[in-house]
């Protein structure tokens, strides 16, 4: 059952991706402006611009450019970066690991710490604690990422010196082996924590609510009555409480990428977020499209994975009934 469902979901991916690609391509190419300026700078003459236009195939009619482009995409060729003169996909691929590292660390942080704090918050019980947990998590949640990033850099990195201010590595040292891993980890912590903060707050809320619900439920009461050990009861209750965490997680992966853009700018983190901004500014369309496809693709894939995780967590769910 679930295998068939997943196959069906898989089959939906290529047409979705293609449609997004075409729409985005059209949007980019119908917009005013000319990538030539980025290529040619501000001093060229007419002949120079014409020559550049020909070199990059920008003199052909739009439908033809689109057809060529789609043909190439099917062969795994996303075009050549106007600015870099290299395949757009490899430009994105080089930057992707940094963003994936940042986003996945934030994901792990927000989930583990979020669930742990959620369990603790549930211990506080309902009533009076409810308001304070609600307000504090929502406040953390409502803080604009760039603001939190500014405050974190100024306070924790600059004033207290606990963390480096920028980058992914220490520019002064060429480290290798374990020392290099430690160096990256040291640089990673602060931006990942800033990126994780909102999600973490959300997870605290979800887990706490879930556990409080479960405590009132029949099966937990029964288990307790039968004298089951506390950790087993917690395990079962937590398993249920995790369901909304997982749902929300799958749908927020796109947002981790989004938050990454702002965090990358403040921390000079060398990921795709900054690549997006610079290629939008220079109108490097092949790279822009490649970033888009890759991010949208990542969101699709993670959604699939979440569906898988779901069946494992909650066998009650019938996929035939979904959608």
């Amino acid at each position: 059952m679930s295998a068939r469902y997943l196959l069906r979901r898989l089959a939906q991916v290529p047409p979705s991706a293609l449609l997004i690609l075409v729409v985005t391509w059209l949007l980019l190419h119908l917009a005013p402006g000319d990538p030539l300026i980025a290529l040619a700078g501000q001093y060229g003459d007419e002949a120079y611009y014409t020559a550049m236009r020909e070199r990059f195939g920008l003199d052909q009619p739009l439908p033809q450019q689109l057809a060529t482009y789609l043909g190439n995409v099917l062969q795994g060729d996303l075009g050549t970066s106007y600015v870099r003169g290299r395949p757009a996909l490899s430009v994105v691929a080089e930057r992707l690991p940094a963003t994936l590292l940042l986003a996945s660390t934030a994901l792990v942080l927000s989930t583990t710490v979020g669930v742990a704090l959620g369990v603790l918050a549930a211990r506080l019980g309902g009533g009076r604690a409810d308001v304070s947990v609600r307000v504090s998590t929502l406040t953390l949640y409502a803080m604009p990422a760039f603001w939190l990033a500014q405050l974190a850099v100024l306070g924790l990195a600059y004033r207290l010196g606990w963390f480096p201010i920028q980058g992914m590595t220490d520019a002064r040292r060429s480290l290798s082996g374990l020392a290099a891993v430690g160096d990256v980890f040291h640089h990673l912590l602060l931006p990942a924590a800033v990126l994780a903060a909102g999600e973490l707050a959300l997870n605290v809320r979800l887990v706490r609510t879930g556990l409080l619900e479960a405590a009132r439920s029949d099966y937990v009461r029964t288990a307790r009555a039968k004298g089951a050990p506390g950790h087993r009861v917690l395990y079962h209750a937590l398993r249920n409480a995790m369901l909304p965490v997982v749902t929300v997680l799958g749908n927020r992966i796109g947002m981790f990428f989004t938050g990454a853009v702002l965090v990358e700018v403040v921390f000079a983190w060398p990921g795709v977020g900054r690549l997006l901004l610079t290629s939008a500014q220079s109108r490097d369309l092949p790279v822009l499209l490649a970033v888009f496809l890759v991010v949208a693709g990542a969101v699709l894939v993670v959604n699939l994975l979440v569906d898988l995780l779901y069946t494992r967590l909650d066998p009650r769910i019938s996929y035939a009934a979904r959608d």
Partner: peptide, 23 residues
Amino acid sequence: MRPVTDAVPAPAADVAARAAGVR
């Protein structure tokens, strides 16, 4: 996370979970 929310913030999380079909 936060700033730019592609999905559902806390208040609506359980509603969202329902919407995703997880009654």
